[in-house]
């Protein structure tokens, strides 16, 4: 097995090392999300006495908000502090000692977590459709395409997160900066409100940012409501932003490594 496959396998072993946490995350959270999403939106639609909201039916908005939490987790992978914490406590040393690129190593560990949450996404999606009366082959294709888009988005986000976390080579604590970045990505990405609900001028601006391609587009692909041109422009945008974020992270590392002292707890 190649070293990168071993890194993925090792990270998977870490996720599976705590079986209580694993089952709570996988099953507990999934069912809680399904129940909350259905009951919340059902009552909102009942109170409005309307069949549709900004082009979303009850079924589609429930599905949207069902995908959001797990899709966001897939996007943020190993989550906040995955690198800055190690720089802070000095355990980052190990990546400088190993004869491999730490960029590759950290991106791989990050994406392993994304894939784990991707499995949860598949589980929730299938559970929801099975509970609501069965699944069709078209929905399975949408699920596969959605998984691929979420994965591409998490590659983009991992490079953005890498760059942000490398700022901790200058400033010891960058927690607020990371939280702010995540909030911006979630808000403008459509995690809190679907991008379709935003005013038109805002949507026109957001097209030139990475945000709508990180959450909104993968959700729409999973739901089967994305157009062919959205898939194409989304793929190009994610690719361009990944390259830009990666180059930014490399530049930060090139400058910041002189500040690393390897001290810590």
């Amino acid at each position: 097995m190649k070293w990168w496959a071993f890194i993925i396998a090792s990270e998977m072993r870490k996720i599976l090392a705590f079986r209580f946490d694993f089952w709570v995350t996988f099953l507990g959270q999934s069912f809680i999300q399904i129940i909350i999403s259905i009951s919340l939106w059902k009552s909102i639609f009942e109170s409005r006495e309307s069949q549709e909201m900004m082009g979303y039916s009850l079924e589609s908005i429930v599905l949207y908000y069902l995908i959001v939490p797990v899709g966001s987790k897939m996007l943020t992978g190993e989550n906040i502090g995955f690198l800055s914490r190690e720089i802070y406590d000095g355990s980052f040393n190990r990546y400088l000692l190993y004869p491999i690129s730490f960029f590759q190593y950290k991106t791989l560990t990050y994406l392993t977590y994304s894939c784990f949450y991707g499995l949860q996404l598949i589980f929730i999606f299938l559970s929801y459709h099975i509970l609501s009366g069965g699944i069709q082959s078209e929905q399975l294709i949408n699920l596969l395409a959605g998984f691929i888009f979420f994965f591409m988005a998490s590659v983009t986000y991992s490079q953005l997160a890498l760059g942000i976390e490398l700022i901790s080579l200058w400033a010891d604590n960058i927690w607020s900066l990371m939280v702010m970045t995540r909030f911006l990505c979630f808000f403008f990405g459509g995690a809190y409100i679907p991008v379709d609900f935003f005013p038109q001028f805002m949507k026109d601006i957001l097209v030139f940012t990475p945000f709508p391609y990180l959450i909104n587009l993968p959700i729409k692909v999973t739901m089967g409501s994305a157009r062919m041109e959205d898939l194409f422009s989304g793929t190009v945008a994610l690719l361009v932003w990944t390259i830009l974020f990666h180059l930014g992270a490399r530049l930060l590392w090139k400058k910041g490594q002189y500040h690393y002292s390897g001290v810590g707890i």
Binding site: W3, F6, A17, F18, Y98
Partner: peptide, 16 residues
């Protein structure tokens, strides 16, 4: 969080 043998196997691949 891993048994030592898992780490060793990873290091075996990293160090070829």
């Amino acid at each position: 969080d891993l048994p030592a043998l898992d780490t060793f196997l990873l290091l075996k691949e990293i160090y070829e």
